[in-house]
Amino acid sequence: MEIALTQDQQAIVDAVKKVTDQFDDEYWSGKEERKEFPHEFHRAMAEGGWLGITMPEELGGSELGVTEAALMMHTVGRSSGGFAAASTIHINLFGPHPVKRFGTPEQKERILKPLIAGEDKVCFGVTEPNAGLDTTSITTFATKVDGGYRVTGRKIWTTSGQVANKILLLTRTTPKDECKKSTEGMTLFYTDLDKDQIEVRRIPKMGRNAVDSNAVFIDDFFIPDEDRIGEEGEGFKYILHSLNPERILIGAEAIGLGQNALDRAAQYAQEREVFGRPIGQNQGIQHPLAENWMALESAYWMMLRAAYLYDTDQSCGAEANAAKFLGGRAAFDACTRAVMTHGGMGYSTEYQVERLFRESIVLRILPVSEQMIANFIGQSVLGLPKSY
């Protein structure tokens, strides 16, 4: 059994790297400092055809698998842009999946083509302040009216809402207590993010400030029937098809970020001399970095295993969640160690590792917590009783 990238897969990695290499540390530090969306990077990735890597060829995409998308996002995460760069284009790879799978031919043409071309930007309106990971408890409600729906509700941690002109929005159309199952009665829409009628309020946060996060306030907003994806009441089932790919992609991005930090730490450890010798010669520096490498490599191959299973229509829930868990943990540990390796300079903005460290923390939180992943593995893999 050969475990290696194919020539085509390696070509993807090399081609993406040529794009990311155009955007250096100075570019990303400036975007972070100014809290400014990296439109130039987004445009370059669109022009390279990368925003449609998993989308249908007839709409301008490449129709490749999650494996190829993960390799692309791993390369992006390992670049100077880190998780900010990955977040710039992340939603294009998993967010429109329900449209691709359940949308009408007219919707696919109208929605996916502008996304692939980089003309539209979309945000994902699912998480709510009082629901969190319990998606079945969302309360944003769409009431049926002539020609469409009237929607009222609140969303939180909506990425890129400041620059997006579209929103993929999950709502309830039947109250939870009136459904036989809690997963029923939810409906998915892809519609205009009309900021004259919808308030999008930026959330101040620790890191990844080049890509905004937001609280979204929707009050009696009209959405036409043609913007509903699939059948009314089936929205939760539709977004489930995006969950495993998202976990795989987040794992890939996290691993890239961690390797980015590790590369910087190893380079600094070779160059920095104290007491007449490079600090990397000391086992107290060398061994922790070696352990970071091992953890990141282990997560990388778990991530690719999960992607392979998904692309071959095999069960991959455990592997996808494990890839996200291991990738996020390994990235955080590597970024922490990179700061410590730099000593006092690791706390400054000059060497970039403090920026990567701030980005790494969120990868242990989103899109699902480590504790919920452990619950899933315990219950679904080990056969232990449900703990929540």
Rank of each mutant, 00 (worst) to 15 (best):
R329L: 13
T336H: 09
G328D: 04
G343Q: 10
I248R: 12
G258V: 09
Q281D: 11
V274R: 08
A269N: 10
W293N: 02
L262Q: 11
E370T: 12
V274Y: 07
V362Q: 03
E253D: 06
G284I: 06
Y238S: 07
F332G: 09
L304Q: 14
Y238E: 09
L366F: 05
L309T: 06
G235K: 10
E231H: 14
A318P: 00
E359T: 02
R264T: 01
L363E: 07
I361H: 04
L309W: 05
L296W: 03
L363M: 13
L289G: 02
P245Q: 10
A295Y: 05
A323I: 12
G344D: 15
G276H: 10
A307P: 03
D313F: 06
P367D: 10
N282F: 13
Q259W: 05
Y310W: 09
K237W: 15
R305S: 13
L289K: 03
E297N: 06
I361C: 02
Y308N: 12
G344M: 15
Q352D: 06
L240Q: 14
P367V: 01
P288T: 06
A323P: 08
A306S: 13
A295E: 14
Q259K: 11
A295N: 13
L366H: 03
W293G: 00
S369E: 10
A334L: 03
I361P: 00
I361V: 11
E231T: 12
G233I: 11
L356G: 04
G233S: 14
Q371C: 04
A254T: 01
E232C: 03
G344N: 14
M302P: 00
W293T: 11
G276M: 08
P278D: 09
M345S: 14
S348C: 12
E234V: 10
E271W: 06
V362M: 02
R247G: 07
D311E: 02
I365K: 12
A290M: 10
R358V: 00
M345Q: 13
S360Q: 06
A338I: 05
G235I: 07
R277A: 14
E234S: 14
R329C: 09
G344S: 14
S369N: 12
R272F: 06
D311W: 07
L356T: 08
A330T: 10
A307H: 11
L289R: 07
K324A: 11
M340C: 13
Q270V: 04
Y310S: 03
W293Q: 13
E231V: 01
R272L: 04
S360C: 00
A254M: 00
Y238N: 03
Q267N: 13
R277S: 15
F332E: 08
I255V: 07
A306P: 00
A261G: 01
P367Y: 10
V339L: 05
T312R: 13
D333V: 05
Q352A: 05
R277Q: 15
R247A: 07
W293D: 09
Y310M: 05
Q283D: 10
E297T: 09
L356M: 11
A307F: 10
E350Q: 12
A266D: 09
M302E: 15
V339Y: 06
Q286P: 00
G346I: 12
V274L: 10
G346N: 09
G276K: 08
L326R: 10
L304N: 13
L366E: 06
Y300F: 15
I248N: 12
L309I: 05
A334F: 02
F236R: 02
L296Y: 07
T349P: 02
I250L: 02
A265Y: 07
L257S: 02
L243E: 14
R358H: 09
G256R: 01
